[in-house]
């Protein structure tokens, strides 16, 4: 585990440098570092600071956020198969964003309000769907797996609404909507990166405060309560934080699937089950997953813009099936 704790951050930095070097034209590493510290040519500096760095930073931040959100969700529901995607939170956020785009665009397809409201719309959508799923599942909380079934149902509903909204919206928005839904970090701008960073920064104190209660939540509900944990309060706070983080990430990078599912698992294997380490690990692994996926689509499909979300699904889905199989066998 110590090896992973050191090598993973180092690997991530290397990966980020490689990602900054790759693009429509390759930029050798010495030019990357030069431009990074303001010593490079004008063209290099512009490419690096205006195109590549926002994209790399966005992939890192979004991945970290999704990894953390997934880990919080799995801990709060005590369900290793829970993820923001499966529970309908991602699709709910998508409904919020599409409604926002539909309601606040004028005929020329220009937003009539500031783009900073987009995450707010996403959060509203995610919260509404999360609340519906939670209240449906709350009635029989003795069967934790029902949460997932309700999540899948509500995700299907949200998905149908998304399809209808895309068709109902202007054609321009439709194609935009499809790309955004698939989850991608291309054409990233610093403004969006700052929005992501702000969301993570706001979440940080709450995360720190939750570390010890989350460790205590390793116990079953009864034992956790009798050792002094306010189980319901902890769970609600954790779920709320997870939903807010997911919505903030999804509103900007779209539905990058399976990161919130896989990152916490890998973190548990590589970093152990302590909440502080597992959160750190989930953030690092999530960041690495999205960055790697984005790098892959750039290398493989250049100049076509395949969304990174497609790659995370292609990698994540088989891993999830493996987990499912193991979980099923353990409970058969």
């Amino acid at each position: 585990m110590t090896a992973a704790r050191v090598s993973l951050p180092v690997g991530l930095v290397v990966l980020a440098l490689v990602a900054a070097a790759m693009g429509s034209s390759f930029m050798p590493l010495d030019r990357v570092t030069a431009a990074l510290f303001g010593q490079g040519s004008r063209a290099d500096t512009v490419i690096l600071w205006n195109i590549r760095l926002p994209r790399v930073t966005m992939a890192l931040l979004a991945g970290a956020g999704l990894g953390i959100a997934g880990m919080l969700l799995q801990r709060a529901t005590r369900n290793p198969l829970a993820s923001p995607g499966v529970l309908g939170i991602v699709d709910g956020a998508a409904v919020g964003v599409l409604l926002f785009l539909l309601l606040f665009s004028n005929e020329a397809n220009v937003l009539t309000v500031s783009i900073v409201w987009q995450p707010v719309a996403a959060i509203l959508g995610a919260v509404v769907f999360a609340l519906v799923v939670a209240s449906l599942a709350a009635r029989d909380d003795t069967r934790p797996m029902t949460l997932i079934l309700y999540g899948i149902s509500l995700a299907a509903l949200a998905n149908a609404i998304v399809v209808l909204l895309i068709i109902a919206g202007p054609v321009y928005r439709a194609s935009q909507g499809l790309i955004w839904l698939a989850g991608s970090v291309q054409s990233a701008e610093w403004r969006e990166v700052w929005m992501l960073a702000m969301a993570l920064l706001v979440a940080l104190p709450a995360l720190v405060a939750l570390i010890r209660p989350l460790d205590q939540l390793h116990l079953d509900d009864l034992s956790a309560r009798t050792t002094g944990l306010s189980v319901t309060r902890t769970r609600v706070a954790t779920l709320a934080l997870s939903v807010l983080l997911t919505a903030a990430m999804v509103s900007i990078v779209g539905g990058i699937g399976f990161v919130g599912l896989i990152a916490p698992h890998a973190a548990r294997l590589l970093f152990g089950t302590g909440a502080a380490w597992q959160l750190t690990g989930a953030a690092l692994i999530g960041a690495g997953m999205v960055l790697m996926a984005d790098l892959l689509v750039r290398v493989l499909f250049q100049p076509l813009e395949v969304p990174a979300g497609a790659v995370t699904a292609l990698i994540g889905a088989p891993y999830f099936l493996f987990l499912l199989l193991r979980h099923g066998r353990a409970h058969a």
Partner: peptide, 20 residues
Amino acid sequence: VHLLLAGVTVAALLMAGVQV
């Protein structure tokens, strides 16, 4: 639940392939 999750995941995998 396990059957449904397996199905939903295989569907997600295939639809990602379709998307690409």
